[in-house]
Amino acid sequence: MFLQQLINGLTLGCVYALIALGYTMVYGILQLINFAHGEIYMLGAYLGVIGLGLAQSINQTGFSPLTLIILLLLFAVIFTALWGVAIERFAYRPLRYAGRLAPLISALGMSIFLQNFVMLSQGAREKVFPNLLSAGGFDIADARVSTVQALIFIISIAMMVGLTLLVKHTKIGTAMRATSQDRLMAQLCGIDINAVIAMTFAIGSGLAGVAGVLVASYYGMINFYIGYQAGLKAFTAAVLGGIGNIPGAMLGGVLLGLVEAFGAGYVSSQYKDVYAFIILIVFLIFRPGGLLGERVVEKV
């Protein structure tokens, strides 16, 4: 049972981590909590369903399941990235110098808008995502890992490694780090900060889109409401790891998934959401910087 709960928790944690990255990257660069980020994840899940319909109408004979998943992921990444950039352009950029509260309220409004937009355009009914991969899986000792769970591990880890390399070793990554450290100085050095911020939104949203498709194929059911709770959990994960800190978001996501799985598995599932939010409160009180958050030294 322990091993099974560990696997359950890791699967959940990988998804939280992918979404938390988007929160943390945007916070790192704009000090804005992008509350519409959960809805981007929801859009990703819907794009998966739409992409599947498109793929089936283009190619009647059908792709192999793996090609299909990769195509769906690409489709969702491209469109969620565009959504992310568009949201930044229209909801946040006009308010960039308007203090911290205005963009925050704009983010909440965006979240409500997106939920209702999807409800009205796609209907209030749950959408079903058919099981693309074989129902089987493999056993480790007495625990069962389904094919979809294995896929979630592999893709999330690949995404996280890719993101780390991108941020550490590429020019755009360097520009992102520079912008997050000092926006004005970065601008003076010739960095187009609007482009960097747009890129940050694109990458963060793309990751949430990946999480959306993975979750749709894991649970097999999505609705326009899934972004709300997933967004709150991922935000908790980002705070837990230290908001603004990229490895922190990954660590926070995985830890949160494990806490939920073990809490529900060994204590009581009645309080599953309570564990996550107790952690949020405890961290906000005792260690607001999070696990890996750096204490900000007052600059003189």
Partner: peptide, 14 residues
């Protein structure tokens, strides 16, 4: 269980 939750694997394992 919690309404709106999507993951019941933990409680079902139990």
């Amino acid at each position: 269980i919690a309404r709106g939750d999507k993951d019941f694997t933990a409680v079902l394992t139990r």
